[in-house]
Write a protein that binds this DNA or RNA. Structure first.
Length: 424
RNA sequence: GGAGAAAUGGCGGAGUGGUCGAUCGCGGCGGUCUUGAAAACCGUUGUCCGCGUAAGCGGACCGGGGGUUCGAAUCCCUCUUUCUCCGCCA
């Protein structure tokens, strides 16, 4: 959510920046400014009437104490008209506030100045790439065949238990999941992240805080009986830890890491490129979250990018890092780097991480602020997060890239966690 | 799920209709004293909105929402949460 002050003061700047995201903000902003003006007008009036009301009420109290009943009654008579006027005005302000919020919440975050213009994936900018593309034979199998061959992930069984997109991991497949999760968490801890294990269902306020609600309601599973949402990412519960919190500057940056299952409805998005592990309704992910000082949030972003890059390198996967263009980035983000790894048999890049700085956009929804020593005012923090990493596509790439005639070689760094070197 | 009790500022804990944004203690911050520190003493200490260049002024907030009243932390309704007892349970 953009700050109302910014909208008041830099309307043209906002409209121009949001063009990069292919969003025409002019109409919404005009509505916002009109609502804001009338809200303030009404507030000025009600505040002064209320001040008068408070003054008279105190006077009545004093008169009553002095036993001056007649004068108290005269004063009391004066309040009736005032009270009515206040009531009429204040009944106007509620709906205006609601409309104002509805409109403000529709504005996406402003893209950072380094964000390239563009409409889709083709316009993303390749920042750098690393690793060596593996040479595989023509007989190389895609992961959906490999998992059957070695009986490590069972989609049909998942369909029986739940439905499509909820696979069952078996034997070495299950153990590989556990190994990756623990490896990622351990690497995060080494990099100074504090681990949390949050609830994987959240309430409406949390969904709003990080920007999933109200607009992306259909993307989350919704337990309607209790009005809870299954988390689409650990970003939601972990960032919301800091909802309605005022931090002191010396606590920043806060660095959290969390493993959670993630749930995504992905309604309508099943098609050609989503076979096997490429897109699931339930998957595992380790997420890093940072709460940063506004002056240092881009340093934080760079550190997070390096951390994620280190993980991919240590797994020996070829990768590239993209700076997303305006049209491909999320509603809430100011700058996003996507990480893609090469999947040998599918012969395509798979997105395995997305690292973003949200600047104060989420913080303003969350009301997460900080105060420096001696500061009178609070300031919004910057929030950031990134996958470190999402498992299924990493597993797909490991399976496809590392397949040999003897079986699938487990990356060296994972062997202490899996206890085996080969899946066969 | 049933019965009862409770929810006050960073924490503890007063306050049952009138000058209470809220006594007091702890903590925090600033100062005096000290070579330094501690102790002691003095002062200070929340958030949001609006008006104002500013100093400042006004409004709102005592779990959330609504109501009664000239006036609500205090009374009423409702929701949520916590605690105790009973039931169920990994």
């Amino acid at each position: 959510m953009l700050a109302i002050n910014l909208i008041r003061e830099k309307k043209d700047f906002i409209i121009e920046r949001l063009r990069v995201k292919n969003f025409d903000a002019s109409e919404t902003i005009e509505k916002i400014l009109a609502l804001d003006t009338s809200r303030r007008e009404i507030q000025v009036k009600t505040d002064s009437l209320q001040a008068e009301m408070n003054r008279i009420s105190k006077e009545i109290g004093t008169l009553m104490k002095a036993g001056n009943k007649e004068e108290a009654e005269v004063a009391r008579q004066k309040t009736f008209a005032l009270k009515e006027e206040i009531k009429i005005l204040s009944e106007k302000i509620g709906p205006i506030d609601n409309d104002l919020k509805t409109e403000i919440v529709r504005l996406p975050n402003l893209p950072h100045e380094s964000v390239p213009a563009g409409h889709g994936a083709d316009d993303n900018e390749i920042v750098r790439s690393g690793g060596v593309l593996p040479v595989v034979t023509d007989t190389a199998l895609p992961h959906w065949d490999l998992i059957k061959k070695y009986d490590i992930i069972d989609f049909e069984l998942g369909i029986k238990l739940t439905g499509a997109g909820f696979p069952v991991y078996k034997g070495k497949g299950a153990k590989l999941q556990r190994a990756l999760i623990t490896f990622f968490l351990d690497q995060g801890e080494k990099a100074g992240y504090d681990e949390v294990y949050p609830p994987i269902m959240v309430n409406e306020d949390s969904g709003f805080g990080t920007g999933q609600l109200p607009d992306k309601e259909g993307q989350m599973y919704h337990a309607t009986l209790d009005n809870f949402y299954l988390v689409p990412t650990a970003e939601v519960p972990v960032t919301n830890i800091y909802r309605d919190v005022i931090l002191s500057a010396d606590q920043l940056p806060i660095k959290n890491i969390a493993y959670t299952p993630c749930f995504r409805r992905e309604a309508g998005s099943w098609g050609a490129h989503v076979r096997g592990l490429n897109r699931l309704h339930q998957f595992d992910k380790v997420e890093i979250v940072r709460i940063a000082h506004p002056d240092h949030s881009y340093e934080s972003l760079d550190e997070m990018v390096s951390h994620v890059e280190g993980l991919i390198v240590s797994l020996g996967l070829p990768y590239r890092i993209l700076r997303l263009c305006g049209g491909d980035m999320s509603f809430t983000s100011a700058l996003t780097y996507d990480f893609e790894v090469w999947s040998a048999a599918q012969k395509r890049w798979l997105e395995v991480s997305s690292v973003s700085n949200f600047e104060s956009f989420q913080a303003n929804r969350l009301k997460c602020r900080f105060k420096d020593k001696g500061d009178k005012q609070t300031t919004l923090v910057h929030t950031l997060n990134g996958s470190a990493l999402a498992l299924p596509r990493i597993v797909a790439a490991i399976l496809e890239n590392n397949q040999t005639e003897e079986g699938i070689r487990v990356p060296k760094v994972l062997v202490p966690y899996t206890g085996f070197e080969i899946i066969n």
